[in-house]
Amino acid sequence: MLAFLANRLFALGLTLLLATVVIFLVLEIIPGDPARLMLGINATQDAVDVLREQMGLNQPPLQRYWSWVTGLLVGDFGTSYTYSVPVSELILERIVVSLPLALIALTLSTLIAIPVGIYAASHRGRVSDTAVIATTQLGIAIPNFWFALLLVYVFAVSLRLVPAGGFPGWDAGVWEAVKALILPSIALALPQAAILARVTRSAIIETLGEDYVRTARAKGLTYRQTLWRHTLRNAMIPVVTIMGLQFAFLLAGTIIIENVFYLPGLGRLVFQAITQHDLPVVQSVVVLLVATVVLINFLVDIAYAVIDPRLRRSVS
């Protein structure tokens, strides 16, 4: 188990390191001079040169990469070009919107999907199963931002139950803040729930066909008992995999959803930063998101090992 963890941790570190290189290289080839962009086309060349020196743009790339990565390790994410404040401050300000949003959405999606998936699998071939299949098929096809528009139209514009957009901040009270996140998280969660429910259903059905389920039946267990005692845990591996992928997707999905609801989250921050060529912000947020994804993959790997004793010994 220890060797397993050490090995996964090493792979995690390696992926992260490579990711920082990729991000740095990609942003390196962006056309346009950030100093010129900040000062505008009317600025004198001298002013631009001074700013370039201040921003450290005249240093060789390797040195800039090194100072960026070492900065990351101690929590120094650099200073935003546009806002002239430390990037870490900006991120902190925004993450309190995006993270709760993604977490609520993931919880919602899991709470809906897994029971629905189990129900459909145990009623395979009946009308209720067919209805679940049809609904999830539709759910997968709906773009979440369109669904969001629809939710806004129905619940905010017509029924006026919740605000149509914006975020009052957590200072305005937890309920007010959560109220602003309800529609966005539903818009994010439902299409994901459709995918997860289908995965759950087919994982269970596949497991029900295994030989050991027949052994359990031959022991005298009823269909329902075999489902709960011998099928669910075995079927969890693909479900956990998809959940891991979905969390990453939900984090990134906030880019679009935050645009629909005018939420001041990480997605909007990075989106604006990209259009404004605010490199320190873009770099940091992307690294942060990649790190989260890698970390989730690590947790998923650990979850596998917890579920499956066969993985506790061997490595991959």
Partner: peptide
Amino acid sequence: HLRGDDIGMVFQEPMTALNPL
């Protein structure tokens, strides 16, 4: 009630007949 108590069954493929977890 009968299965596993009064009638027991052994299958062909031992590699897959047991729950791995």
